[in-house]
Amino acid sequence: MSERQITFEVLRYNPETDDKPWVQTYSVPCQEDWVVLDAINYIKDHLDTSLSYRWSCHMAVCGSCGMMVNGEPTLSCKAFLRDYKGSKIRVEPLSHFPIERDLVVVLDDFMGKLQSVKPYIIPKKEKPVEEGEYKQTPRQLKNFKQYTMCINCMLCYAACPQYGLNDDFIGPAALALTHRYNLDSRDGGRSQRQEVVAQHEGVWECSFVGACSEVCPKDVDPAGAIQQMKIASTVDWYLEHLMPWRAK
């Protein structure tokens, strides 16, 4: 199997010894079919056991191993070395998040925001389990299915310049999941979620750069979800003001 020597420039930060992050380089003998994560695992196993990063499934579904690879938010388990020409690859922790250590970032902000949008079914009418499943046609399923595919990998937040400038922004993934539940035929909780969605830090903070959708490894298209919610919120506003008798 052909081998390729690649220099990895890895951003290191140890809060106990460093004032700020710095770059360490490692020269790694890489196999042709490796992904960036394989090279990082090689570093951990053979060159430097102190390098910290998150990973688990190695099949792009657990969402642990998001990193900036050559400046682009990427799942390192799906970043094939064959797609990187040249002999150098730069690896940094995801942008816009505080660095806990090395390639590990602090995710508290997202976890709080996810909870704030009530990402669960709020049924229109409670139905006991004994009465069986809610009927949902393939058509109704398709309506929201795309937005269920989010693996919470945070690449979209690392790509979103608005989140970088103002971290009060609820952000792409959490809003896409809000949209997912709003569109679900079993759900009746949209009005409860609107409080968060329609505020300034909700959909209106988004200026539709579209970067989130471009980097999304699961084609969730959060940018689309947010624009659709803007339209729906606008319609709400007009209905409320032009037809006040329709208000709840």
């Binding site: 669960y120 949902q136 393939p138 109704q140 299915k145 079993r186």
Partner: peptide
């Protein structure tokens, strides 16, 4: 299913 799992469906839902 009641909690929202997007199970694949038959035509009749």
């Amino acid at each position: 299913e009641h909690w929202g799992c997007p199970w694949s469906r038959e035509k009749d839902g």
